[in-house]
Design a protein around this nucleic acid. Structure first.
Lengths: 222, 222
DNA sequence: CCATCAGGCTTACGTCGTAAGGCTAATCTT
DNA sequence: AAGATTAGCCTTACGACGTAAGCCTGATGG
């Protein structure tokens, strides 16, 4: 009695793709590896996704669906609290799929899931009394932060960089005095924060609240 | 009299790489193509860059050097105006190299050029009276915006998407009422802005000023 | 004057996405 | 019921990519 052959389907393909990226990183997501995980040959995947780009599009849709489920319907009172909650909820999903932000940024066509998410954001702004014009600018001001992530261009708390950073501190201090002083002071203030010398979640929320309160001021001024 | 054979050098390699990315996009930048443009075989490049990742690191250093030259020394009075100028100057460089932001985001190691740039940003904050702690949070709040770019997750003014967007307006209105209404109103207000229905430069500056003025408020409060 | 070696070149490998087309079993048509 | 269609798998093969290994040549330096 052999295991019943579950037929392939778009949903199974996308699900397996997400699983690979979660477990082994986005670089491990190749057509051959994906096929292998599904007990199938690579070319069989093309009956369910047009090509690799379409696969990545689909994977993003899976993530966006996860977000949509998590955030639910937009709340229509206290826009600032509603936005904050929506964004931080979406962020949880991106923290579960660390590769997803980068993939999302490489999509060339507009994803329905992302559009739907932003429509919900707009609903909150409008219910909070924003003009379309201000809401529009608010969307741009938030950028990817509206979805719960922001690009970190360099991560001083990256453990991989620690050793080399340690050795670099001397010349760092010479060439980059302000940065060196800041790192020294902040590291001293917070010697063993749970998330390293700088807590990304706290920093993210700081930036988010800074923008939200700025927007509230503009809204109130009319 | 044959054309004098200019010997290869790291600088020539990186320069040619930037030229290819500028002209034909970052996807066209392959080792073979780069070698071809330099009148050389692909493997010869490896005498001047360790591998392709190192090539991309180097290319970013070229861009950051361009920025360093453009922004000059940090100005130490009127921090807000100084930051604004520094960021918008850096932005000009990224607008000349549209591929550079994406490449920068994929660097795994911290680039000295980027560090130097941020050190200048910190100098401005400090001269403006920021504590290290607030300056640190300010850096995170700005994120890549400090360098002059922000991730646009979908670009409604993308000409490539225009046709499909046009056809999509009907169902857009059904499923995404707020977004549809916003697009309709804003497009109507500004029927032929030079840069399409939404001017990225204006949106960028809006977001930047929103953050900068929020930071100024926090700084003034102490 | 000869040894070293920097800086080119040639060849070749393994991995990737995917084009072309074959086989089989389920489904649909008449 | 029987024949035609097709969905959904597989096999084979191609061209592009990054790059390992090693050859060749002309300048340099003891």
């Amino acid at each position: 009695m052999t295991a019943e052959r579950v037929p392939l389907s778009r949903a199974r393909v996308l699900g397996a793709a997400v699983a690979i990226a979660d477990r082994d990183g986005i670089a491990a997501l190749t057509m051959r590896r994906l096929a292998q995980d599904l007990g199938v040959e690579a070319m069989s995947l093309y009956h369910h996704v047009a090509n690799k780009e379409a696969l990545l599009d689909g994977v993003i849709e899976v993530v966006m669906a996860e977000i949509a489920e998590a955030v639910g319907e937009p709340v229509v009172e206290d826009w600032q609290a509603a936005m904050r909650a929506r964004v931080l909820t979406a962020r949880q999903v991106f923290l579960r799929h660390p590769w997803a932000a980068r993939v999302l940024e490489t999509r060339t066509s507009i994803s329905p899931g992302v559009i739907a998410y932003y429509d919900g954001v707009l609903a909150i702004f409008r219910a909070g009394g924003f003009s379309y014009d201000l809401a529009h600018r608010a969307l741009h001001a938030l950028g990817s932060r509206a979805l719960g992530f922001s690009q970190e261009l360099f991560d001083l708390s990256d453990p991989a960089a620690d050793a080399e950073a340690e050795a670099m501190v001397q010349e760092l201090a010479e060439h980059f005095p302000h940065l060196a002083a800041m790192v020294a002071e902040i590291a001293h203030d917070d010697p063993d924060s749970a998330l390293g010398w700088c807590d990304h979640q706290a920093e993210f929320e700081f930036g988010l609240d800074l923008i939200l309160s700025g927007l509230e001021r503009l809204r109130a001024e009319g």
